[in-house]
Design a protein around this nucleic acid. Structure first.
Lengths: 330, 330
DNA sequence: CTGAAAGCGCTAACAC
DNA sequence: GTGTTAGCGCTTTCAG
């Protein structure tokens, strides 16, 4: 790292490199461009040498202003709080960076005013936006971003938007059939934040799967995806013990398990327990919870494909299938 | 949202607003600036009205180029994988955004070439960088960033760098004394990635605490902070069962607990088990692990103070004390 | 208080 | 293949 700006205190610019290499600034721009642009080999080498000696680094602000594009991907989430987030976002960050882009993580929390986060922010100019948060539909997001490269992963897509959908119905059907096969006639469903479209669809999937399999849904208990809310739900469930408990997150299932253990009820002996997400990072021996999962690397690969060539992404979107994953509790 | 750019397909610029309001571009710039700059109230109102009608949004790239600053905070981490990361980064993101800034998350993984991620990237021009990853020391990071606002949170600081240090020794001393008080004479230490400076210091703290308290450290078993590595470590530990097991992460402690349970050994009856981090999100009933923790909101508050006014940050850095948190296993 | 003009550092278009 | 020129959209002197 031979840092040696020509003018003290200022970083070298393309003009400095041009001067040092004895060429025009435009030549430097071309020589340093990743795509092959017309420059003689000899000059290119001179430029590269001069740039290295000066410790030159391109100013992405200036480039972004000139090209109207920037290698930044906005990742819009509600929270970073669930165990399953670790499984997903760590490899996702890696994937984004492998493309030479960087991720700007926007956590909208429970506000509905997503544009407050974007007003005058860089986010307007990102290469692409990955929308996991359900607090925005496709139209809103498109209006918010300068970029049209918006990938909806929250279920709130429309005909114009690129999307990846996790097909939860398939895995849920399988799960409920499995429970039925083990003699379950009635069950309780513990839900997450019901205002979410994804959660709404998930709940509907459980209802239809239960109806189809002949499992009676005794009640639905509201939670917030968290372990603590599962523990709370257990208090309600314990009153009229069902044969099975379906939870729309693994964390809640863990909570239910511990909550019901206080009442001396343990799966799978006393009831069958099912989670959702099939998290790796939370697959502890003490909570060996049967669940519904999908291939996360397939999701990341899909996102990667989108980021690499948004225009070639299938117009119909991508569907990632889910499947039932049998573990110890059901 | 009254979007109505004057020229089709292009976002309105400051010039468009100026034209609509019948003033000069400079006036618009001043009127829209957050800091109070000389503009007559009447024109300011005209500008604000015109901007709203046109759906004008400032272009941060252009502003950044002109002002050489941008409201972006780089957060540099190794991985996003531990349970404790959820406890920290969710509130941290919230805090950064509350300042009107956005976070760009840089995951360096196990590469040592951190600058590969930064080369020609926006990161060079961030308002500040928060360095959690230990793959860079203070000097390297300062050289990498255009900004001098680098906050070291990885222990690798020098006299010039702002820093927040988690004082782990205090909590570890307390923990070991606690174990000694319960009759522990010998113990095994399960460590994380030892190439990390923080981990190195943590290990040293355990050694000195054990020496001081009169606890014999039988051996040190290498892990990688993860649950799985804890399970593996248990196989080694089971051979010569110690009176206590100290782990440098809660996740590993959970793994050790499950691994030793296979051999029929359970804490606290058969041995005492201690973790590190005192994660909230992973504080499950089945893993009620005694641990060392610190006030995460104090850390976030410290970071917030730094971001708000880096130059006023105490030159001596900030120390966050840790304390022993007694739970069920020790 | 106002506005013209000069950049910030880079790329794209156009001549040569 | 090369160099010149003209912006990208904004802020900031600096006269008025």
């Amino acid at each position: 790292m031979t840092e040696k700006p020509p003018r003290e205190g200022k970083r070298p610019t393309i003009a400095d490199v041009a001067r040092a290499a004895g060429v025009a600034p435009a030549i430097v721009s071309r020589a340093l461009s990743p795509s092959r642009r017309p420059v003689s080999l000899e000059k290119k080498e001179r430029v590269l040498k001069a740039a290295a000696e000066l410790g030159y680094h391109q100013n992405p602000l200036a480039r972004g202003l000139a090209t109207k594009s920037i290698d930044l991907v906005a990742v819009i989430i509600n929270y970073l709080s669930d165990l399953s987030d670790l499984d997903l976002f760590d490899p996702l960050l890696d994937a984004i960076q492998s493309l030479g882009k960087q991720a700007i993580l926007i956590r909208v929390g429970r506000t509905k005013r997503i544009d407050d986060f974007l007003r005058n922010s860089l986010s307007y100019h990102v290469h692409a936006a990955l929308v996991f948060s359900d607090f925005a539909d496709a139209g809103e997001v498109r209006a918010l971003f300068h970029s049209d490269n918006v990938l909806m992963l929250n279920g709130r897509f429309d005909a114009e938007s690129a999307r990846i959908r996790i097909d939860e119905q398939s895995g849920i059907d399988e799960l409920v059939r499995h429970a039925r096969g083990r003699g379950v006639g009635s069950a309780v469903l513990v839900t997450g934040r019901v205002s979410s479209l994804v959660e709404e669809a998930r709940i509907a999937a459980y209802r239809s799967a239960c109806a189809a399999a002949g499992v009676r849904l005794l009640s639905e208990v509201g939670g917030d995806y968290s372990y603590g809310s599962g523990v709370k739900a257990a208090a309600v469930i314990a009153v009229a013990m069902p044969e099975a408990v379906f939870c729309t997150s693994d964390s809640m299932a863990m909570g239910v398990m511990d909550g019901l253990a206080r009442a001396g009820r343990r799966p799978p002996a006393d009831y069958l327990l099912y989670g959702f997400d099939a998290v790796d990072k939370g697959n502890f021996a003490a909570y060996d919870i049967s669940s519904v999962g999908f291939d996360r690397s397939a999701l990341v690969a899909g996102i990667l494909a989108y980021l690499g060539a948004p225009e070639e992404f299938p117009a119909a979107g991508l569907d990632i299938p889910t499947r039932f994953i049998a573990r110890g509790t059901g």
